[in-house]
Simulated assay, not measured.
Amino acid sequence: MKQRLRILLRASFVMLMLGITATPLLADLPQQRKALDELQAAKKAADPLPLLESAKNRIAKANKGNKGGDKEDVLDKIDEAINELKAGNRDKMESKINAAIANLHQGKDKSKRPK
């Protein structure tokens, strides 16, 4: 009886620890999805600047790390898109947004690969 209780307590502890460590990793996924949605919407918006800035803030605050530089690349591409927008180059802005989206997807794919 005592052995079963010990096994149950150990298993519960392990499950609790796994839940605690996995929670921050999963918390970023909704933020990344929202950032992706905002980047897509910015391409068609009459005033894309607020959407670009919001997506940039979501990516910057993501706590999953840099994933081999992809996070910084995404932030750089969003900055470049903002600069192109301010210069009046919507076509170039859209190209930079597409590059940011591709880099964001690339980083998400890397995070799914086994290490």
Rank of each mutant, 00 (worst) to 15 (best):
K2A: 02
K2T: 02
Q3N: 06
I7C: 03
L8Y: 03
L9C: 13
L9T: 10
L9Y: 07
R10Q: 04
A11E: 10
A11V: 08
S12D: 09
S12E: 14
S12Q: 08
S12L: 10
F13D: 04
V14M: 05
M15H: 12
L16E: 00
L16F: 00
M17T: 13
L18I: 10
L18M: 09
G19D: 00
G19C: 00
I20K: 12
T21Q: 07
T23I: 05
T23N: 13
T23R: 10
L25W: 04
L25Q: 03
L25I: 11
L26C: 08
L26H: 01
D28F: 15
L29Q: 11
P30C: 02
Q31V: 11
K34I: 09
A35L: 03
A35Y: 05
A35P: 02
L36C: 01
L36E: 06
D37H: 11
D37V: 05
E38M: 15
E38T: 04
L39G: 05
L39P: 01
L39D: 04
A41F: 00
A41P: 01
A41V: 00
A42Q: 04
A42M: 07
K43N: 04
K44D: 09
A45I: 00
D47Y: 03
P48Y: 01
L49K: 13
P50F: 01
L52T: 02
S54V: 05
S54Q: 12
A55M: 00
K56F: 01
K56P: 07
K56M: 00
N57A: 04
N57K: 10
N57V: 01
R58F: 15
I59F: 09
A60L: 01
A60R: 12
A62N: 07
A62C: 07
A62H: 03
A62P: 06
N63R: 10
N63W: 11
N63F: 08
K64V: 02
G65L: 15
G65I: 11
G68E: 08
G69M: 13
E72T: 03
D73H: 10
V74M: 12
L75R: 14
D76S: 02
D76K: 15
K77I: 02
K77Y: 09
D79C: 08
E80D: 05
E80K: 06
I82V: 14
E84S: 05
E84P: 05
L85F: 12
L85G: 13
L85V: 14
L85W: 03
K86M: 08
K86S: 13
A87E: 02
A87R: 03
A87C: 00
G88E: 07
G88Y: 07
N89D: 09
N89V: 02
R90W: 03
D91Y: 13
D91A: 14
K92G: 13
K92I: 01
K92P: 02
M93T: 06
K96Q: 10
K96Y: 11
N98P: 14
N98S: 07
N98V: 15
N98W: 09
A100E: 00
A100H: 01
I101S: 11
N103V: 06
L104A: 12
H105R: 13
H105N: 15
H105A: 14
H105I: 05
H105Q: 08
G107K: 00
G107Y: 00
G107V: 02
G107A: 15
K108H: 06
D109H: 02
D109P: 09
D109S: 09
K110E: 12
K110F: 12
S111H: 08
P114L: 04
K115A: 10
